[in-house]
Structures are given as structure tokens and as C-alpha cells.
């Protein structure tokens, strides 16, 4: 199945708002929690309480420091999981067909029972979105919660990815990016949603919304201050006038 479907019926993915993400890691743990008892093998943690714990996570949050030419540096929290690329190199390199992209919704998945754990797909992914499970030795990646979003055992409003449902700041959005009328498409259009590493030619589905300008507003001080009351005496004269108006 390593051939990519030319076009998918829908294009499901995430839109992540870097202007809002506070870097709380809620999405990281919720993802781990949902998936460790769900799709495929559990997400193992090697040496869980020891000197070098290494666990498989499908979603991780980095923090970047951005230093402008002038002005203060800022930190930007940056969640990252599989971007479900349209031209997913991780799929085409897979020798076994374990990696595939679903024609119906574009979700990129790993069929763990077919995976030989060669790791090549992780090498092919420019985003670091695939991790081999340290115990089961099969490739793990974000499933876009395919076992939630269509799950009849879950109330309808909860048929969204675990990370989206949990995000306290509302920085994560899920939807069909091929539908220009969808909430996610609207956000991308309005806020200038962008691709990560466009130079890699992967055509990622997930989009990122940039931090909004952090320049302070220029405020017309003169218009606001109807009076300049440098001294208390002046202030009290103003006060009398103001009290008259009450």
C-alpha cells in the first residue's frame, strides 16, 4: 500500500494555533493516554522509573526562542505530531506496505502487524513524527485518533482527537481541510496558516497559525487625556468639575 492515493475524499487534519498554545503538554499526555490502550501496541516507556526513561509519544511540544533583529526575544510553544502529508515520503519508502495513507480521509497510518520495524519511514519523515516503540519495535505515529473520530461508542461531540478535546487553551482544531467552508479552512485562510518545511515537498495537511504581531498598540495619548493634571491642586479642580457632571 505504499502508493499514495492520488486524491483523498476528505483531507482530515489539525490546525495548531501558535498564538494561543501555552505549551502546557496537555495534548501530549492525553494523546499518550488515549493511544496506549487503543490503536496498536501500547505506547511503551522503557526504563520508566530509571535513569534513562524513553517512551514512545505521538505528539510532542517544543519551545522555540525567536530573536528578532531588534526588541525582546520571545518563546513560542510548538506542538508537533504527524502532519498527514499529501505527498508523504514516509509511505512511499515503506518496504512492507505497513505505512499507508487512507484514500477516504487522508489519514496516514501504520499497520503494525505488517511493520518490520526497519525505521526507514522515520528517516523519510522530515518532521520527526514517527517513533519506533521501544518495546514492541513497531513504528508508531499519530493516527489522527482514527479510533475516536468515527467511534460509535463515543458521544458525537467527542468524536474528535484526544489532543483536541483536551487542549485547555483551544489551540488545536480538527477538521476537513479540503472543505473550504470548514472551520479549519476558515482559520487557515483568515490567519495565514502555513506549512512546516515547504522545501521538503511533503505537502503537509496540518497547518500552523502564526503568532500574531506582538508589537504594542500605538495609542493616541493626547486624545485620551482630556486634561493634564500634573499637580494635586489641578487634579482637585478637575475633580470638582467631574463631580458636578456625575
Amino acid at each position: 500500500m505504499t502508493a499514495l492515493p492520488g486524491k483523498t475524499d476528505r483531507t482530515l487534519g489539525l490546525v495548531i494555533d501558535l498564538d494561543t498554545c501555552v505549551g502546557c503538554h496537555a495534548c501530549v499526555v492525553s494523546c499518550k493516554e488515549w493511544n496506549t490502550g487503543g490503536y496498536g501496541a501500547p505506547l511503551a516507556d522503557a526504563d520508566a522509573w530509571g535513569a534513562e526513561p524513553v517512551g514512545a509519544f505521538l505528539n510532542r511540544v517544543h519551545t522555540f526562542e525567536v530573536t528578532p533583529d531588534s526588541g525582546a526575544a520571545m518563546n513560542v510553544h510548538f506542538p508537533k505530531s504527524c502532519l498527514h502529508c499529501a505527498d508523504a515520503p514516509c509511505v512511499t519508502v515503506c518496504p512492507t506496505g505497513a505505512s499507508y495513507k487512507r484514500a477516504e480521509d487522508g489519514i496516514v497510518l501504520v499497520n503494525e502487524t505488517a511493520c518490520i520495524g526497519c525505521g526507514l519511514c522515520a528517516w523519510a519523515c522530515p518532521y520527526g513524527a514517527r517513533e519506533q516503540d521501544p518495546v514492541e519495535k513497531v513504528m508508531k505515529k499519530c493516527t489522527l485518533c482514527v479510533d475516536r473520530i468515527y467511534n460509535d461508542n463515543i458521544p458525537e461531540q467527542d468524536r474528535i482527537p484526544a489532543c483536541v478535546r483536551t487542549c485547555p487553551a483551544g489551540a488545536r482544531h480538527f477538521g476537513d481541510l479540503s472543505d473550504p467552508g470548514s472551520e479549519v479552512s476558515r482559520l487557515v485562510a483568515e490567519r495565514g496558516g502555513f506549512d512546516l518545511m515547504p522545501e521538503q515537498g511533503t505537502s503537509p495537511v496540518n497547518k500552523y497559525l502564526p503568532p500574531r504581531a506582538r508589537e504594542p498598540e500605538s495609542i493616541d495619548l493626547a486624545a485620551l487625556c482630556d486634561t493634564d493634571l500634573a499637580e494635586p491642586t489641578g487634579f482637585f479642580a478637575w475633580l470638582d468639575r467631574a463631580l458636578e457632571r456625575l
Binding site: V66, T67, Y208, P210
Partner: peptide, 21 residues
């Protein structure tokens, strides 16, 4: 990160302080 238009970008904190695959 797509943040190049805002300035030079450097990792400040890795997503996990422990190692990963």
C-alpha cells in the same frame, strides 16, 4: 517552524528532558 519571518529561531526547550527514539 515557519517562524523565520519573526527572527532567528533556536530550540529553547526540547519536548522531553529525557532522550527519545
Amino acid at each position: 517552524t515557519g517562524l523565520g519571518h519573526l527572527g532567528r529561531v533556536r530550540l529553547f526547550e526540547a519536548p522531553h528532558t529525557g532522550p527519545n527514539y
